[in-house]
């Protein structure tokens, strides 16, 4: 018995030393970024961002841009400027060291996807499913005080020089004639720019985004019941849907990355 107690004591000491050893590893935030085709997706303080390394372009899903619309048609962000100013929300980005270590291990073996949660008056979760060059972003809003809400909007940021167009070749962001010509010459895709409205409805379920400074094409797809708007004033792509459930609203958006516009268009 004495031998066992003695052994258990030293085993415990040894295990503690092993745990301390493990606790010392350095986990950089970069380790938790996930590949989606030529882009990467990772959770940041302001939301889930879609980006290419070593560039300054971040396409972001954020609760500070996402919104709800009440019966009077009033649009409100999930977290307002005042909420931000007063710190009325908390994200789970900064995880305890043990959780970070587990996340890195799971990520190394492709057993996880990025996600981020915000707690406040409304709880908001962004959960992703990554599969090769495709990612499904599910956003959940948990809110009890919701009687007057009729619509929710998920948003994706974009940049001024981006080409945003649909499968029919309708261009939703301004580009000069010369740029449109170059686009046709290089990619063989004919685009036309007609709209002058600041907020434009996209009549299809698919949209393509090309940042001239980045490689690849982002294909954005929405489900039945969702509607895409290009808000050129706020540089946001809004994906709006009518709410069906009480207390929990789910919204899904799919992004796929292709090397060229031809491949992206062929995928429809």
């Amino acid at each position: 018995m004495k031998k066992i107690i003695y052994s258990v004591f030293f085993l415990s000491v040894f295990i503690i030393l092993c745990f301390i050893s493990l606790y010392g590893v350095i986990v950089s935030p970069l380790e938790l970024s996930y590949s989606v085709g030529g882009y990467q997706i990772a959770a940041f303080e302001r939301g889930l961002a879609f980006y290419q390394p070593n560039t300054r372009y971040f396409y972001t899903f954020s609760p500070f841009n996402d919104y709800i619309v009440d019966v009077d048609g009033k649009r409100m962000p999930l977290y307002s400027k005042d909420d931000v100013k007063l710190g009325k929300y908390k994200s789970d980005l900064d995880k305890p060291q043990w959780e970070k270590i587990v996340s890195v291990i799971l990520k190394y073996f492709n057993l996880s996807s990025p996600e981020i949660s915000y707690q406040g008056e409304k709880n908001v979760d962004y959960i992703t499913t990554v599969d090769g060059n495709k990612v499904i972003v599910d956003r959940y809003i948990w809110w009890k005080n919701n009687n007057s809400i009729v619509n929710t909007g998920t948003t994706l940021t974009y940049y001024p020089g981006d080409f945003i167009f649909d499968a029919g070749g309708n261009l939703y962001t301004y580009q000069s004639e010369k740029e449109i010509e170059s686009f046709k010459k290089i990619y063989g895709v004919d685009l036309r720019y007609e709209t002058t409205d600041l907020r434009v409805n996209v009549p299809t379920q698919f949209l393509f985004i090309i940042n001239p400074q980045l490689s690849g094409v982002i294909k954005l797809s929405v489900n039945d019941g969702q509607m895409i708007w290009i808000d050129r004033n706020s540089r946001l792509i809004d994906i709006e849907q009518t709410i069906k459930e009480v207390e929990k609203y789910k919204s899904s958006v799919t992004l796929e990355i292709f090397d060229t516009p031809q491949k992206a268009l062929k995928s429809i």
Binding site: I26, V27, P53, I101, I105, Y108
Partner: peptide
Amino acid sequence: VIFITNNAYFKSI
């Protein structure tokens, strides 16, 4: 586990 986290750190860029 230390080896994996080290690998992940080294390779992340």
